[in-house]
Amino acid sequence: MIVLVFNEQRCPLCFYQTVSDFQPLSQYEIEIICINDGSRDKTSDITGALLLSDPIVTLINC
């Protein structure tokens, strides 16, 4: 999954939890790729914390 995260500091954790808890996806090997295009809030920090806690999360800062 590719997710654009620009000034979305409230959304990455909620999105991650929703995807992780969605049972039909549990049968697949998934990857969440977050693309941060210059956010000025804490989007990068929050998504970076998810990256450290779960290897399915990838963060690309542009």
Score class of each variant (00 low, 15 high):
Met1Lys: 09
Met1Cys: 10
Met1His: 07
Met1Ser: 15
Met1Pro: 14
Ile2Asp: 14
Ile2Phe: 12
Val3Gly: 02
Val3Cys: 03
Val3Lys: 00
Leu4His: 08
Leu4Ser: 14
Val5His: 03
Val5Asn: 06
Phe6Val: 08
Phe6Asn: 11
Asn7Thr: 00
Asn7Gly: 04
Asn7Asp: 15
Asn7Ile: 01
Glu8Met: 08
Glu8Trp: 02
Gln9Thr: 02
Gln9Phe: 04
Arg10Glu: 10
Arg10Leu: 03
Arg10Phe: 07
Pro12Asp: 01
Pro12Ile: 00
Pro12Gln: 01
Pro12Met: 00
Leu13Ser: 14
Leu13Tyr: 10
Leu13Cys: 05
Leu13Ala: 14
Leu13Trp: 02
Cys14Ala: 15
Phe15Gln: 08
Tyr16Arg: 00
Gln17Pro: 02
Gln17Thr: 05
Thr18Tyr: 12
Val19Asp: 04
Val19Cys: 05
Ser20Arg: 10
Ser20Leu: 01
Asp21Val: 01
Asp21Ala: 10
Phe22Tyr: 14
Phe22Arg: 01
Phe22Asp: 02
Gln23Glu: 08
Gln23Leu: 09
Gln23Val: 12
Gln23Thr: 11
Pro24Cys: 00
Pro24Lys: 01
Leu25Glu: 09
Leu25Phe: 09
Ser26Phe: 06
Ser26Cys: 05
Ser26Gly: 09
Gln27Trp: 06
Gln27Met: 11
Gln27Thr: 08
Gln27Tyr: 06
Gln27Ile: 08
Gln27Asn: 12
Tyr28Val: 09
Tyr28His: 14
Glu29Tyr: 14
Glu29Ile: 15
Ile30Leu: 15
Ile30Lys: 11
Ile30Trp: 11
Ile30Ser: 02
Glu31Ser: 15
Ile32Arg: 03
Ile32Lys: 08
Ile33Thr: 10
Ile33Phe: 11
Ile33Ser: 13
Cys34Met: 07
Cys34Val: 04
Ile35Arg: 00
Ile35Val: 10
Ile35Ser: 00
Ile35His: 00
Asn36Thr: 00
Asp37Tyr: 05
Gly38Glu: 07
Gly38Cys: 08
Ser39Tyr: 07
Ser39Val: 08
Ser39Met: 13
Ser39Glu: 06
Arg40Pro: 04
Asp41Ile: 00
Asp41Val: 01
Asp41Asn: 05
Asp41Ala: 03
Lys42Leu: 13
Lys42Arg: 14
Lys42His: 10
Ser44Phe: 04
Asp45Arg: 13
Asp45His: 15
Ile46Lys: 02
Ile46Trp: 06
Thr47Asn: 02
Thr47Met: 07
Gly48Met: 01
Gly48Gln: 06
Gly48Asn: 07
Gly48Ala: 03
Ala49Trp: 02
Ala49Val: 05
Ala49Asn: 05
Ala49His: 07
Ala49Gly: 02
Ala49Arg: 07
Leu50Asp: 04
Leu50Gln: 05
Leu51Gly: 10
Leu51Ile: 04
Leu51Gln: 13
Leu52Arg: 12
Leu52Asp: 15
Leu52Lys: 14
Ser53His: 04
Ser53Ile: 06
Ser53Trp: 01
Asp54Lys: 05
Asp54Met: 09
Asp54Ile: 07
Asp54Ser: 13
Pro55Cys: 11
Pro55Ile: 06
Pro55Lys: 10
Ile56Lys: 15
Ile56Pro: 07
Val57Thr: 06
Val57Arg: 04
Thr58Phe: 07
Thr58Asn: 06
Thr58Leu: 11
Thr58Pro: 06
Leu59Trp: 00
Leu59Pro: 01
Ile60Lys: 09
Ile60His: 10
Ile60Tyr: 11
Asn61Met: 01
Asn61Trp: 00
Asn61Lys: 10
Asn61His: 02
Asn61Asp: 03
